[in-house]
Design a protein around this nucleic acid. Sequence first.
DNA 1: TCATAAAGTTCAAAAACTGAACTGAATTTG
DNA 2: CAAATTCAGTTCAGTTTTTGAACTTTATGA
Lengths: 159, 159
Amino acid sequence: MTTANYQKHHCPIAQAMAELGDQWTLLIVRDALLAGRSRFSEFQESLGISRNLLTLRLTKLCDAGIFERVPIAGSKRHAYVPTQKCRALRVVILAMGEWAEKWANDPHIHHLDVLEKTTGQPVTVGFFRREDGTIVEPDAVDIVRHGNQKPDHGGKDLS
Amino acid sequence: MTTANYQKHHCPIAQAMAELGDQWTLLIVRDALLAGRSRFSEFQESLGISRNLLTLRLTKLCDAGIFERVPIAGSKRHAYVPTQKCRALRVVILAMGEWAEKWANDPHIHHLDVLEKTTGQPVTVGFFRREDGTIVEPDAVDIVRHGNQKPDHGGKDLS
DNA sequence: TCATAAAGTTCAAAAACTGAACTGAATTTG
DNA sequence: CAAATTCAGTTCAGTTTTTGAACTTTATGA
């Protein structure tokens, strides 16, 4: 399935995969959001990704509006700064992190704490919530595509 | 970065990427969880993935305990059935979906409704919450590794 | 000024992925 | 019951991606 094919399906998951679905992209985002890295060489050293591929990935991420190339004051070099679109991936990253903490079988896996900036108080990641803010248990939700009440269908396309 | 390298870092995000980080895996999971697909040929037709690669991916997913090969009653063929570990990816998938609906620039993107089963009321996916249950805005949180109060550091490793 | 670092580019080799044909059961159809 | 079709793969040649290493070109630092 090419990027063109993803687009054709108009499925949000497929679209997300078209922008994020390779080995490196989400690790670059992680480095930016969780470790504050922003320079080419910081990503390169941290990840061990090959330099030409990192160039490609950062270019794609900038084109997608996930990072912004920002000139560094008093220098002609620049930083790759996460945009709001990038910061919006925080929930995705944390969902993956919590999943791995629970399900990956690495006994030495690290724990990611989420803290409120102003107070430093721990915050929990919740996943399903009603409009009034109350919590809904994961098993108590259905997922339906727009205009279709059945969660599973017999047709070929998903969205 | 090889799988071995991912493991070495003990970072939950890296671990998640080691299990899920390619073009197809999360789309297979999506097909299973949101469309109820479970057979080799269902995945193959839906995704257009090449058959040998699908074999590889399904084998890896079974080895990782994300799918289970279940014999079909009255047949010698089998189905790939999502395990609890797989169903736990629902929130990851939905978080990605909500992100794409908001940020991907496809004007025809489909909407995934998440509804409470009992009432049919829409539910929001992914949020941060204080101990008293009040909601924290996404930008108002920091993510830190266990045992380290600083969100950004000068060292080399992330977790 | 000279040396080093930062941010790439270039290129050959290796690995992954695709698409198509092939195989051997299982199932359906006539 | 025999023949045709479907299912769940396997095999393999060709293409595309990714890697790893060397190279370039501006900056910055001593």
